[in-house]
Simulated assay, not measured.
Amino acid sequence: MAETHQVLWTDTARQDLIGIIDYIAQDSVEDALVVLDKLEAKAAQLTTLPSRGRIVPELLDTGISQYREIISAPWRIVYRIESQRVLVMAVLDSRRDLQVVLLNRLAH
């Protein structure tokens, strides 16, 4: 049986998700709900094989390798694996300059 992890959303990631959904809902509530379901389902897949996501390249370039991402185009779901937990750290639009956004948020 595959090892399972608990997927938890940080407050920051929840705020990202709310912002995305609110923005899309300005044009279409139906589309916003579809995106919400899609992003939550994609993150939920991390309960098994959370290491399937790639290391975030913009962070790896600066020597930070503990953050991974999965793509649900055009969104990037950034997360960190901690023991039996997967912490969703951010949901970001891949069309933005992510190096600055990620470094400001995730680098300590």
Rank of each mutant, 00 (worst) to 15 (best):
M1Y: 10
T4D: 11
H5Q: 03
Q6R: 12
V7H: 08
V7L: 02
L8Q: 07
T10A: 11
T10N: 02
A13K: 07
A13E: 00
D16M: 10
I20N: 14
I21N: 12
D22L: 08
D22W: 00
Y23C: 01
I24E: 08
Q26N: 00
D27W: 10
S28P: 13
V29P: 13
V29T: 15
V34A: 15
V34R: 15
D37F: 02
L39G: 03
K42N: 05
A43K: 01
A44Y: 09
A44L: 03
T47C: 10
P50A: 03
S51L: 11
R52T: 14
G53M: 13
R54I: 15
R54N: 07
R54E: 05
I55P: 06
V56K: 01
P57Y: 11
L59E: 01
L60A: 14
T62W: 03
T62Y: 04
I64R: 10
S65W: 02
Y67V: 06
V78Q: 02
E82N: 14
S83Y: 02
S83F: 00
R85E: 03
R85M: 09
V88Q: 08
A90C: 05
A90W: 09
V91P: 10
D93Q: 06
D93E: 00
S94Q: 15
S94G: 07
R96E: 04
D97F: 01
D97T: 07
L98V: 08
V100G: 01
N104R: 12
R105T: 02
L106D: 03
A107S: 11
A107W: 04
H108V: 11
